[in-house]
C-alpha cells in the first residue's frame, strides 16, 4: 500500500488557554485506505496532530512531513510550510482532504445542499448527481433544502460528512465526529460513513478521547490501526492483530 502520510520528528508547540503544550511525533506512517484512530484523553494533542495532517497547522520543526494523497502525487509539506506556500497548501487541502468537525462546522446561512456543494464549487467541479447520491447514502436527502439550524445533531453530522466527501477526497479527517451524539446514532452514522469510505477507497483518520467507546463501537468494526497520543507524545500501534 502507498504511504499517504510520512512524518518523522515533527514538533509543534502551542499555547492553549495560557498553558504551553508540546506535541512530539517521533515517527508515523499512514497508508492509503487505512482507517486510523487517534486515541487519547482530552488535551493530549490529538486535534493538534489532526490539524497538522489536514495542513491547517504549521509544524514548528520536522525531519520529514510528506503527503502522497494519490499515486505519483508527492508533496513535501514541511518544505511548503517553510517556504510559506500557503496557496499551494490550501490547494492540496482543498483537493485531497475532507475534514469533519465535532460540531459539523456547517455554515449556518447556507442550506445543507449549498454547504455540501461548497468544496465542489471551489474546485470548479461540474454539477453531477454526486450530491444527491451521497446525501441519499447518508440519509439526508429530505434535508437538503433546509438550513443547518433546523437539523438534529445527527443530521448535521451526516451533512458534515457529506460536505467533506462531496469532492471525492482521498483523505478524510474527522475530529471526534460522533462525540456529541448518542452511542446508537454515532454507531449508525459511522457504519454508513465506513461503507462510503470503503467504496470510495478513502484513507480515514479520526480522533477520539473515549477509549472504551472506540474499542466497543469503532475499533472492533471499523479500525485497522490506532495512533495513541498521550501527553504530547505520539505512539503508533496496530489494533488489527
Amino acid at each position: 500500500m502507498t504511504v499517504v502520510y510520512s512524518l518523522e520528528n515533527v514538533v509543534k508547540e502551542r499555547l492553549i488557554d495560557g498553558v504551553g503544550f508540546r506535541l512530539q511525533v517521533p515517527r508515523i506512517q499512514i497508508r492509503a485506505e487505512e482507517n486510523i484512530a487517534l486515541i487519547g484523553h482530552s488535551g493530549c494533542g490529538k486535534s493538534t496532530l489532526l490539524d497538522m495532517l489536514a495542513l491547517i497547522l504549521r509544524p514548528d520543526t520536522s525531519d520529514e512531513f510528506s503527503l502522497h494523497p494519490v499515486q505519483g502525487d508527492n508533496h513535501d509539506v514541511a518544505g511548503l510550510w517553510r517556504r510559506d506556500r500557503y496557496s499551494r497548501l490550501s490547494q492540496i487541502r482543498k483537493q485531497h482532504i475532507g475534514y469533519v468537525l465535532q460540531s459539523g462546522g456547517l455554515l449556518p446561512y447556507l442550506t445543507v445542499r449549498e454547504n455540501i456543494e461548497l468544496p465542489r464549487r471551489l474546485l470548479k467541479l461540474p454539477d453531477d448527481d454526486s450530491i444527491n447520491s451521497i446525501s441519499k447514502v447518508l440519509g439526508i436527502s429530505r434535508q437538503l433544502d433546509k438550513l443547518p439550524g433546523l437539523l438534529s445533531a445527527g443530521e448535521r453530522q451526516r451533512a458534515a460528512f457529506a460536505r467533506a466527501l462531496s469532492h471525492r477526497p482521498s483523505i478524510l479527517i474527522a475530529d471526534e465526529p460522533t462525540a456529541a451524539l448518542d452511542p446508537i446514532t454515532a454507531h449508525k452514522i459511522m457504519a454508513v460513513v465506513m461503507e462510503v469510505i470503503r467504496g470510495l477507497k478513502i484513507t480515514l483518520i479520526t480522533a477520539s478521547h473515549d477509549w472504551a467507546h472506540v474499542y466497543k463501537m469503532e475499533l472492533r468494526t471499523l479500525r485497522q490501526e490506532a495512533v495513541a497520543v498521550d501527553d504530547g507524545k505520539v505512539y503508533q500501534s496496530s489494533f488489527s492483530d
Partner: peptide
C-alpha cells in the same frame, strides 16, 4: 471567526 475558519478550511484563501 468560526465561520471564517470553516471558509479557510474548505479552501478560501486569506
Amino acid at each position: 471567526r468560526k465561520d471564517l475558519s470553516v471558509l479557510r478550511l474548505v479552501g478560501f484563501k486569506g
